[in-house]
Design a binder for these strands. Structure first.
Length: 745
DNA sequence: GGGTCCCCGTTTTTT
DNA sequence: ACGGGGACCC
């Protein structure tokens, strides 16, 4: 291939079949082959050549991946270190390593198994010089990235008010996701973002990163690609090494990751990608469903294996999910079949329930949770899955008042907390002298009387002499440039850092961290803070020092933290979990509650406004992910009225509700919500069965009718569309509402 | 250099 | 309504 960065589909590299290998010497009764269905068996045993496994929700994907690795290793087709297995999350990587370990024993330890980013770090640490970095480069978190970009913008005189750094960062990240280094970005690509200078800022930002010997997450992939391109010898080594490549969640790969895989698979062409186009829900962060859709074109002669037997959900749930997702165009096409026997008398239809407003919705859901609990179900098997974070509040309130134990997932993660990042900056500064971002972060923390003026001066010296900030500071305090007070403070700070650094060799690292946090006054700062969350922060700092003890060295720890920014969310006691639909991907629960199925909330208004039809289809896939999380019980709810930004909004049931198959769904709505029913604005006390939604029924209202709405007050009907009315309210403005909410005046 | 006031945005998140 | 961040003033 002349240009490995080319995405030109016209000329795929010629397909060379893998060299013939000896027949598989694995006994047919190998334990990892036991109990596989025919499709799974095929996905495990067809080890050579390109394979795409389309694996629907709950079809045993992880089992196939781990068994396949066992098959390759046990068959003597490759040594563990010749196998590359890539995942997206650390959790998935950990799980896979553990399960392969059970099948093949210690051999699993030398597999190249990890996240894209961790594997790239492993490669880059070896060849850092080839891309202009030192081997001990720092991996920046999003905080530092943004600060660095802001510095560049300020130096370039870009108005941060007009062009938010966040937005420019987003653009840069998309470029990196697409595998485009600064010199491959067309000048006009960002439009008039930053006055047409976005591409310049990208280049300067990259220069700056290199200067401080740092990478952001996107760079890990991008630098790897650059390395492979610049050094065909190095690429050839890796291509030769990786006889077998496995990729999990292929539908989530971005272009950079796709190019990376395509380069590495070039020689042996034994690449197996597992994924589900129907569960692609991350396009907004650069994932390209296209990668999975065009696999057969990229790897001619590829085997495509569909896993459609679902071992998770009841037939009703599967039917609902399949029916809904069938409304999407451009799918590879898959239909989930029940893989387990289900007693039709024992399985319940999917329930859809309409309620008056948000608080009522929370009441209904939590009532149901309590009912199921009384029936002997465990809370740990129940989940409330919301579209967006703001929806969790009402459920939390209700769960607290009823005393149902719960856990909200997705708060700020441990290593993203301010106090942890600050402490980490201290450790980074001690560990690597040229980490200028760490220096800036802690030089005046706690307050030492070093403000912008002093810092500015340090920057000036650093730029003039080409020194790291810390070295510049040491030089500066030797002069009379600074006023006495800041000078003393900065001298003291530099001396402290040097002293801590001198302890690196002699002291064990948790002890050193303890010393640093103590002598710097950082812990003291929080102890003196009287805000309510300060004690928690002190506790977190203790936790950090403890965690440090689990690593062999400070360096190892810093790398781990940069790559594994996760909560060790203990799945401790019996609690209902509340989380976003995105967060629930890959999980399963006996009972799933899906609230907020209203137009504008789900599908989310912004997804439709910004993504058009493609946005809507991604929302639908998200709905599909939600439905397929449930093993036995599924309750979907929507509210007729919702308060958003403290304003009451009338809401219409989600279009996704109309896309569920009648035969498998049981619909109920509070009286007064029934489309076409007698209008009533009284808070409903009883519940009526709502059979089939009749969307196009003629309305009792005409244009010009004067009507009264319980929350918006009086208004005039502007337009009638079936059961939907557009009404100009006297006070609340023009809104669309269901006719059942208003009455004639 | 630190505090106060105002204005803006307010989907989803991993590494 | 509310919180976070930036600008401005003391």
């Amino acid at each position: 291939m002349s240009d490995p960065f080319s995405l030109d589909d016209e000329s795929p590299a010629p397909f060379r079949p893998a060299p013939p290998r000896p027949p598989v010497a694995v006994p047919a009764d190998a334990p990892w082959l036991a109990g596989l269905n025919p499709e799974q068996h095929q996905a495990v045993t067809v080890t050579d050549g390109p394979v795409l496994v389309l694996s629907g929700a709950g079809t045993g994907k992880t089992r196939v991946l781990t068994s396949r690795l066992a098959q390759i290793l046990a068959g003597g087709r490759a040594q563990p270190w010749q196998c590359l297995a890539v995942t997206f999350t650390n959790k998935a990587a950990r799980e896979m390593r553990e399960r392969v370990g059970h099948l093949v024993g210690p051999a699993s330890e030398s597999l190249w198994l990890g996240t894209f980013h961790a594997l790239c770090v492993r490669i880059l640490r070896r060849h850092a010089e080839a891309v202009g970095l030192k081997s001990n480069f720092t991996i920046l978190d999003s905080d530092d990235q943004l600060r660095l970009l802001k510095q560049v913008m300020e130096a370039e005189g870009i108005d941060a008010k007009r062009w938010p750094a966040q937005a420019i960062m987003g653009t840069i990240q998309r470029w990196k996701d697409r595998g485009q280094p600064p010199d491959k970005v067309g000048g006009a690509e960002a439009g008039d973002l930053a006055g047409g200078r976005a591409a310049d800022l990208y280049r300067l930002y990259q220069d700056r990163l290199r200067l401080v010997n740092a990478c952001d997450f996107g760079d890990l992939l991008l630098h790897c690609l650059t390395l492979f391109l610049a050094r065909p010898d190095i690429l050839a080594d890796y291509q030769g090494q990786f006889r077998y490549i496995l990729v999990d969640e292929y539908q989530d790969t971005n272009v950079a990751q796709y190019l990376w895989l395509r380069l590495l698979a070039q020689k042996h062409r034994n690449i197996c990608c597992v994924g589900d186009d129907d569960q692609s829900i991350y396009s907004w962060r650069g994932a390209e469903v296209g990668n999975i859709l065009k696999f057969e074109r990229d790897f001619p002669g590829a085997r495509v294996i569909r896993l459609e037997s679902n071992y998770r959900s009841t037939p009703h749930i599967l039917a609902a999910a399949s029916h809904l997702i069938a409304h999407n165009a451009g799918r590879l096409g898959k239909t989930l079949r029940p893989g387990l026997a289900h007693d039709p008398d024992q399985t319940r239809k999917v329930r859809v329930r309409g309620v008056w407003d948000g608080p009522e919705e929370a009441r209904v859901v939590v009532d149901e949770i309590e009912a199921q609990q009384r029936a002997g179900q465990s809370l740990a098997g129940m989940a409330i899955l919301v579209r967006a974070g703001f929806q969790t509040r009402e459920f939390e309130e209700r769960l607290i008042t009823t005393g149902v134990p719960y856990r909200v997932l997705g708060g700020p993660r441990f290593y993203e907390r301010q106090e942890i990042r600050d402490a980490m900056a201290y450790l980074r500064l001690v560990n690597s002298p040229d980490d200028g971002l760490a220096f800036e972060r802690v030089v005046n923390l706690p307050k030492r009387g070093l403000g912008d003026a002093a810092l500015q001066m340090v920057h000036t010296v650093a730029r003039a002499r080409g020194l790291p900030l810390f070295e510049a500071a040491r030089l500066l305090v030797e002069t009379d440039e600074l006023k006495p007070k800041p000078r003393t403070a900065l001298t003291r700070f530099c001396d402290d850092v040097l002293r801590w650094r001198s302890n690196l060799e002699t002291m064990d690292h948790p002890q050193l961290a303890d010393l640093i946090l103590d002598e710097s006054g950082y812990v003291e700062m929080w102890k003196a803070d009287k805000s309510p969350d300060a004690p928690g922060r002190v506790e977190n700092l203790g936790e950090l020092v403890r965690a440090l003890g689990e690593y062999d060295s400070l360096e190892q720890f810093l790398d781990h933290v940069a790559l594994v920014m996760e909560n060790d969310s203990r799945t401790d006691t019996d609690k209902v979990v509340v989380m976003t639909l995105h967060g629930a991907k890959g999980l399963e629960f006996d009972s799933v509650f899906l609230p907020g199925w209203e137009e504008g909330v789900f599908p989310h208004q912004r997804a439709m406004d910004e993504g058009g039809l493609a946005g809507l289809e991604e929302e639908r896939r998200l709905a599909y992910v939600g439905l397929t999380r449930a093993r036995r019980n599924l309750l979907i709810t929507f509210a007729g009225n919702r308060r958003i930004y403290n304003q009451w909004q009338a809401s219409l049931p989600s279009r996704f509700l109309d896309e569920l198959p009648e035969a498998h769904v049981e619909r109920q709505a509070d009286r007064g919500l029934h489309p076409g029913g007698a209008p009533s604005w009284k808070r409903p006390a009883e519940v009526a069965t709502w059979a089939v939604p009749e969307r196009r029924k003629t309305s009792d209202f005409d244009e010009g009718s004067r009507v009264l709405h319980p929350k918006f007050g009086p208004g005039t009907v502007l337009a009638v569309d079936g059961d939907k009315l557009e009404i100009a309210f006297d006070k609340a403005g023009t809104k669309k509402v269901l006719d059942s909410f208003v009455e004639l005046m």
